[in-house]
């Protein structure tokens, strides 16, 4: 019996080495796996929080309209009513958060208007487009149109 074992001893040593390796692996694995891994699925549950705690840049129009109710009213019946404020004014969460901290610049109208309204074959036919050079003859768009209420039917106040 002893004799038998003797000729396999080196194998037992090798097996021991593998065993130790395996043990180290299992222990390290236990220590290193993030604690919340697998709580919700095969991922770190806190990754959800990482994703939801990113800083906001766009405040959303509801926020703007709470304070700028005059503009909101002005736009309420205009063709532009469905356009969010920040589509033209850019991301303004910092301003909405604290109006005193950031005083937004007034956007220049013409490039804005042209970006949406310039004639283009690919644009759907229902969308009102113009060829800017022909249409305004170099004048700024807001010489005639008011950005918040560009149509002419409902023009009333000073905008």
């Amino acid at each position: 019996m002893r004799e038998l074992f003797k000729d396999k001893e080196h194998l037992v040593r090798m097996a021991g080495l593998f065993g130790v390796g395996l043990l180290v692996f299992v222990v390290l694995r236990g220590v290193l796996i993030p604690a919340d891994f697998g709580d919700l699925g095969h991922y770190r549950a806190s990754a959800l929080d990482d994703n939801s705690s990113v800083e906001l840049r766009f405040a959303g129009r509801a926020a703007c309209e709470l304070c700028h109710d005059d503009v909101a009213a002005e736009r309420a019946k205009s063709a532009h009513r469905s356009i969010a404020c920040e589509a033209c004014h850019g991301a303004l969460a910092v301003h909405a958060d604290n109006p005193e901290a950031v005083f937004p610049e007034r956007p220049e109208a013409t490039p804005l208007c042209v970006a949406c309204h310039e004639a283009n074959v690919t644009k759907p036919a229902w969308f009102p487009t113009v060829i800017p050079d022909e249409h305004s003859e170099g004048e700024a768009c807001d010489e005639c149109h008011m950005p918040h209420a560009p149509g002419f039917e409902e023009v009333g106040s000073d905008g």
């Binding site: 705690s53 906001l56 840049r57 469905s82 920040e86």
Partner: peptide, 23 residues
């Protein structure tokens, strides 16, 4: 795209939908 996960979890819409002028 994270579908603006930081926005939609707060009841806001995504940035792209927010600014889309035509819906």
């Amino acid at each position: 795209c994270s579908l603006c996960y930081h926005r939609i979890t707060k009841g806001l819409t995504t940035a792209c939908c927010e600014v889309c002028p035509t819906g």
